[in-house]
Each structure stands twice: as C-alpha cells, then as structure tokens.
Design a protein around this nucleic acid. Structure first.
Length: 424
RNA sequence: GUGGGUGUAGCUCAGCUGGUAGAGCGCUGCGUUGUGGUCGCAGAUGCCGCGGGUUCAAGUCCCGUCACUCACCCCA
C-alpha cells in the first residue's frame, strides 16, 4: 500500500454529509440578492497581480503578505484572488457594464485564497458569497446591500450575530481627520510596530485589542465626529433605510476594515461564538475604486460573506443539519427482470422531480432495508417475484411502518408520495 | 509570520511512575424462508502522525519534523 496524499495546509474539505449544509448555506446567502434584481457574475479565480496591488492597496496585509502569487509561462505575474471586489470591478470595466443601465448590481460566489496561518474558521482557501453595486450614491442602496447580508443570515435561523456599522468619511473629510488622529497617536505611548501602523493606517490602531493600547485611546478622535455635511446626511439616511428594512445594528465608530478602498458606509457582521475568527461578513462603500482601476468615475458598495464561517456559526447555534434527506423513495429489486423494471420506473420518477435511489450490488433484502434507513428514505419500494407477477410494487412508509401494494407505474407512485394523508 | 496545546481503531477518547494496546459509538455477520430503525449474540479493524535517539525493552522519555488546534496578527 502506498502512502496516501493529504490536502495542502489550511484548505478544507467538505465531505458529505456536511457538504449538504455547505451548499445550503451558500444558497441561502445568495438568495436575497437574486430576489433583489442582482445578476450573477462568473469570474476567474486568478487575476493579474497588479489588479490587487492597485485595487486593494499595497499597504494592506492582504496584499503585502497574504497573496498566492506566481509567474506564469508567459512571465506574467499572476495572483490567486484574495478577495472579490477588485475582480468584479475589473470585469465591470472590461465588459463595459458601466456604460449600460445603472446601477450595476451583481453577485458572485466561490473560492478565495490567502496565505495565512490556518486556524478554525481561517482557511487558505476560503469560500465567499458577495455582491457589488456600482453606479449609485443613493443611501437606500447602502441599506439594501446591508439588508441582503443581514437577511441572508437570519434566513438560516442565525440569531447570535450582530452588525457593526459606521461611516469612514470620504476624500474630503477623511484626510483631515486622518491627520488629526495621527497627531493624537503621536502623543500616545506606543510600541514600535504600532507606531508604524499609525503611519500607514492610523484607523487600524483604534481597533487594537490590547488593553494597554485601548486605555490610551479613550479620548481618541473618531471619524464619525469629523464627517463632512454630505457624509453626515448620507449616513443619517442609511440609518433610516436600515430601520425601514428591519435591520438591527450597533454603531461602532472604531470599526475598521483591512482594505484601503472603503469610504463612507462600512460594516461587518460578527458572530461571537466562533472564537477569534468571528467575522462572518463585511463590506462597505468604495467610492474611488472604479476610477482607480481605470473605469468611469462611479461609486460602489458591496460585501463578502464567509460561507465557511457562516456554516460554522450555524453549527455553533445548533441549526444544522439543514438537510437530512436526499431521496424520496428507495427501490429494492430482486431478480434481473425486477431490476430492469425498477430502472425504468426510477427514470420516470426522476423526470418528475422525485429523487430516488436503489440498492445496487444485490445484497439481502435485510441489508438493503438497512441502507434505505441509512439514507433516511421516507419510502421504500420493493419489487420481487410476487410483484413482477402482479405488476405491482410494495411501498413501505418508513416512519409509520405501513406497507401497501401499488400498481407498478410512475403515476401511482407519485400519487402515493404526494397524497395529503402521508406526512413523513 | 510569532507563541502555547494536541496527535492512540471510521468517530470520541482511556492507557498511572517505560514491559510488544483498550472502551463507547460506528462497521460486518447472525437471531431460519422477502423487510430497516429497538434489543441480544458474535466478529473485524490499529506503521499508537512521521523520522531519529536513550533503553534489555517506548504509545509511554528526549530531539526533530509534519498536521491539527488555541491565541497574537489579520480577516471571510
């Protein structure tokens, strides 16, 4: 026996039965967007490295030390996408979507890659569901985007998460605030590493978890108090629309995001039961990104929701399994003729949207029944010699144990499965 | 990338101060002729993560390595 090969470090498998819940979660997170007029966009998982350097920001941790970058055979620098927004914006520009009707509303789902130290809920290949809207400054769209994520989570039954919300200002009010904050931080007693961070991204220091740092920050200036009138009224409207959308949030003026492009409305979803990796989603406005990437000067807003972490959150809240049963009826055929008839019957049922499976590799009826039980089939159809003679099938209700003889036709079976007197 | 913890059957884990491995669950079979879930009986399964070292002898001690895990960092 040769040695088995294991997966590269930090990449998760979702074998069944958990894969059922993974798909369920992914679909649930995407569904609100599809109901709100968002179109799906399929994107490559690798892009030119430059896209992320320019789009996400060279100074961010994501770009500076977490990217999977390699040189392809044409000597081009290629990077496995670490996040979704830059790629979507690139595709909008490249496909001239920004020349069409606005706003452009898109959603996507798939894997992203970050070369981080793995831990629970932090993977080197992570799955996200995201949406992006380009070409609208309407605060109602901010609220719509946030409510999409919010209701995606609630639709799964999640209750223990909360939404952090703030405004990061714009190109007019942020620079002066940034200077004010830097001056303040300069007067604090900070270690070398934090001082450097204060120069590159002073906002990030506000988020420091250490108490020694936090107690010095109690009087730190906050962006929210320095918003210009336009940002101020935008944020006020966003709040109104959020209330009207049934969304609950917490204002967190110290909320910081790791990517450079965020402006104005910024938010994150946190699930406290997940340990250190508690962010299950986040996003915000990025009013300069389109122009930065060579497109029309249009504003945008979007989010990324972590499918992996959302599944973890659902498990932490005891909501799983979401999917208990895959098939509606399980066939057990005895003898070659019976198996032929069964195959035909199953084709007809499947064509009608009924899921069915059968016992392969003829075992004893007993072990076939056991299999039926294991796949949680609510009904079992038995086709043996007697049934072949009488052109019938025995259909057993696995919850009640009742069994009856039905004509060997798809119609009869379908009628039995959907008849109101059965409740599985 | 930095620190701590763990690594024994498919799963969850026990194995005290070194003496060639155990439980529960699961799995397979049986409980008579074509019927699952409960119950009873029987059975199989382990390069004790990997490599090296100490020792008469190592799952048990030491070193290294890999993986997982927790925290930092960062973020989904």
């Amino acid at each position: 026996m040769t040695r088995a090969i294991s997966a590269p470090r930090g990449v998760p498998d979702y074998p069944p039965p958990r894969s059922r819940d993974f798909l369920f979660v992914r679909d649930a997170l995407a569904q609100p967007a599809t109901r709100a007029g968002y179109e799906y966009i399929e994107l490559p998982v690798f892009e030119s490295t430059e896209l992320f350097i320019r789009g996400v920001g060279e100074s961010t941790d994501v770009v500076s030390k977490e990217m999977y970058t390699f040189t392809d055979r044409g000597d081009r620098s290629i990077t496995l996408r670490p996040e979704g927004t830059a790629g979507v914006i690139r595709a909008i520009i490249e496909n001239r979507l920004d020349k069409g009707p606005l706003p452009v509303k898109l959603w996507y789902a798939g894997p992203f890659f970050r070369a981080e130290r793995p831990q629970q809920g932090r993977y080197r290949q992570l799955q996200q569901v995201g949406v992006e809207v380009v070409g609208s400054d309407d605060p109602a769209i901010d609220a719509e985007v946030i409510s999409l994520a919010y209701h995606g989570f609630t639709s799964l039954g999640l209750r223990n998460f909360y939404l952090n919300l703030t405004s990061l200002g714009c190109s007019i009010c942020r620079p002066p605030y940034r200077k004010t904050l830097q001056e303040f931080l300069g007067s604090c007693d900070l270690d070398q590493e934090t001082r450097e961070r204060a120069l590159i991204n002073p906002l990030r220091v506000l988020d420091d978890k250490r108490e020694i740092v936090q107690e010095q920050l109690t009087d730190a200036p906050l962006m929210i108090d320095y918003l210009c009138p336009a940002c101020e009224s935008h944020f006020t409207s966003v709040r109104s629309y959020l209330s009207a959308s049934g969304v609950q949030w917490r204002e967190n003026p110290r909320l910081v995001r790791g990517l450079d492009y965020y402006t104005r409305t910024t938010f994150e979803f946190v699930h406290p039961d997940l340990g250190a990796q508690s962010g299950i989603g986040g996003g915000g406005r990025y009013d300069g990104l389109m122009a930065e990437l060579g497109g029309e000067s249009l504003s945008g807003i979007g989010f990324g929701l972590g499918t992996d972490r959302t599944l973890l959150a659902c498990e932490a809240e005891g909501l799983t399994p979401f999917v208990r049963r895959l098939i509606d009826i399980y066939f057990i055929a005895m003898g070659d003729e019976a198996r032929l008839r069964t195959v035909t019957l199953m084709q007809a049922l499947r064509a009608h949207g009924i899921s069915c499976d059968m016992a392969f590799d003829s075992h004893s009826l007993k072990s076939a029944m056991k299999n039926a039980d294991r796949v949680a089939a609510p009904f079992v159809a038995i086709v043996g010699e007697d049934e072949m003679h009488s052109n019938s099938v025995q259909v057993k209700n696995m919850t009640t144990g009742e069994q009856e003889s039905l004509p060997s036709t798809a119609q009869a079976l379908i009628g039995h499965l959907i008849s109101p007197d059965r409740k599985a």
